[in-house]
């Protein structure tokens, strides 16, 4: 039985959704870790979505400085898988675990919708269950989801195959981008490929009743790879 840590910051609000998907749907064991507590022994870490610290200052900026993130940094440095979703992605970039930043959507408004996302790489602990080029239907819900990085960083990300998820249309073509992200980036990994940040919410797409099960692959891949690394 793996233990997956789901971090909780003041203002996190997708923490219980992640727990539900992992525990009630996929049968994993989840431990909530409060932002001031030690991470402890876990097989994987999820930094969930929400509005940590109300998104005050900048999305993710305050959470990135919280005590638990020191442990997360060490866990990632040992090769442990870390998945940041939405606000979690923002926190990981603010914490320096991923390059670049998430800026205000080009449309300026908050966007909640279900969009198409293409799996670019399957050689990560988060996407092993998918086929390369597979088009997923995943919910998004964010105000600051426009991925930005300098040209050199973007070139490096592309060159190293670290753009793992990309916004596309239903046919898998790059004609549809809900927030203006550079290179249609929906998710990237770090150099070592064990830290993924993604704006779409895989935990919202794990049950037929709610419309899509396309997000299961992210969580199932994570559980599988956690079993391997543990």
């Amino acid at each position: 039985m793996h233990s997956i840590a789901v971090l909780r910051f003041p203002g996190s609000n997708c923490d219980d959704d992640a727990r539900h998907a992992l525990e009630d749907v996929l049968g994993a064991s989840v431990r909530f870790v409060w932002h001031t507590d030690a991470l402890g022994a876990v097989d994987a870490v999820i930094v969930p979505g929400g509005f940590s610290y109300g998104d005050y200052l900048r999305s993710g900026a305050l959470a990135a400085k919280s005590p638990v993130m020191r442990d997360v940094r060490a866990f990632a440095a040992r090769g442990g898988p870390v998945l940041g979703i939405c606000n979690g992605f923002q926190i990981l970039t603010e914490a320096g675990l991923l390059p670049g930043a998430l800026a205000r959507n080009t449309g300026l408004d908050f966007v909640c919708d279900t969009v198409s996302v293409r799996v670019e790489r399957t050689d990560t602990p988060f996407t092993g269950c998918y086929r390369e080029g597979q088009v997923l239907r995943l919910p998004i819900a964010h105000h600051e989801g426009r991925y930005e990085a300098d040209a050199a960083t973007l070139e490096r990300l592309e060159g190293e195959g670290r753009v793992v998820l990309r916004y596309v249309d239903v046919h898998g073509e790059r004609t549809s981008n809900p927030n203006g992200s550079a290179h249609d980036v929906a998710g990237i990994v770090n150099e070592r490929r064990n830290v993924l940040g993604m704006m779409p919410h895989p935990e919202r797409a794990v049950e037929t009743l709610l419309g899509s099960t396309d997000g299961i692959g992210v969580l199932a891949s994570l559980l599988e790879s956690a079993a391997v690394t543990a």
């Binding site: 609000n13 997708c14 219980d16 959704d17 539900h20 998907a21 979505g49 408004d109 908050f110 966007v111 909640c112 919708d113 919910p139 819900a141 919410h201 935990e203 919202r204 049950e207 009743l209 709610l210 419309g211």
Partner: peptide, 16 residues
Amino acid sequence: IFRQYDHQVMTNTVVL
């Protein structure tokens, strides 16, 4: 209008 509202958080919304 409703695109600006998060209508899926809490993962309970069956009819959007």
